[in-house]
Design a protein around this nucleic acid. Structure first.
Length: 262
DNA sequence: ATGCCTTCTAGCAGAAGA
């Protein structure tokens, strides 16, 4: 028995519903962590998604951000919002426990801030948000259970994860302070699923809409599945569903899918 | 060197994204 968990920044579920339904059908996974749904909870196209066999939990927001967890198995212990965000109005975090056949797995769908331009409040918000994520991860790691932090981290971990890394110098996605936050998660004992199962250079999850980035393969890897040791021990493989970027009206991100013995 | 494109809301332009 295997459990497949996908992370996908859909870039508006309402603007993309036909494409999104087609992508979900194609990837055929048990759990989907969505980011940038860009709608409030009561506008989420719940019926269409439920018709595909998914339970749905959302933490939505009008216009910006918004995250969701879809699961073919029962969803329990839902927590919306990243702890420590006194006065943070952005919907960027939802956490839940999935009752998988082989046992429970805690899944998080996260949309980390972009943070550009550096030297502004946007960048300090990005770093502070990651510090809160690190604190939450520390708490959850102590539970010693299968845990998947799935999402759009808006961080390029290595030069090998960009088509043209020199072009990202000075960008919030490739700033040393940003990469240090991502490294901190790994230094705590968490595992980048892609790096464990694959690790090749130039395996991108995002291509800008502009300047023919997709056609030229000018991409970056910024969508990540970060695992507790108990989840990493059960990881069978990771796949990036590039086909989604070639569809009609695509998101600028594509799904990254982990397969687990769970 | 800048903007390229797409989304949103609002309202026929501007912000945000990455």
């Amino acid at each position: 028995m295997s459990l497949k968990i996908a992370s996908w920044n859909v870039n508006s579920i309402l603007a993309r519903l036909p494409t999104a339904l087609a992508v979900l059908k194609e990837i055929d996974v048990d759990v989907v962590c969505l980011q940038e749904i860009k709608c409030e909870d009561d506008r989420f196209p719940r019926l269409e998604i439920e018709a595909m066999g998914y339970n749905v939990e959302t933490h939505g927001q009008k216009t910006y951000n918004g995250v969701a967890i879809l699961s073919k198995h029962r969803i329990e212990e839902v927590e919306a919002g990243l702890p420590g965000g006194d006065g943070d109005s952005h919907s960027r975090y939802i956490e839940a426990v999935i009752s998988a056949p082989e046992g429970p797995v805690r899944v998080i769908s996260l949309y980390a801030p972009n943070g550009n331009p550096i030297g502004t409040e946007k960048f300090s918000y990005k770093l502070a948000w990651h510090d809160r994520l690190i604190a939450r991860a520390q708490t959850l790691l102590a539970l010693e259970e299968p845990l998947v932090l799935a999402g759009d981290y808006n961080i390029i971990p290595r030069a090998d994860d960009a088509d043209a890394p020199e072009g990202w110098k000075g960008d919030a996605l490739f700033q040393p302070e940003s990469i240090a936050r991502y490294r901190a998660l790994l230094n705590m004992g968490m595992i980048d699923a892609f790096m464990q199962a694959d690790g090749r250079a130039r395996q991108f999850t995002f291509w800008d809409y502009q300047a023919g980035a997709w056609r030229r393969d000018h991409g970056i890897r910024i969508d990540h599945l970060v695992l507790s040791p108990q989840a990493a021990d059960r990881l069978q493989g990771v796949r990036i569903h590039k086909d989604a970027r070639a569809m009609e009206k695509p998101s600028d991100h594509v799904p990254i899918i982990g397969t687990f013995d769970l």
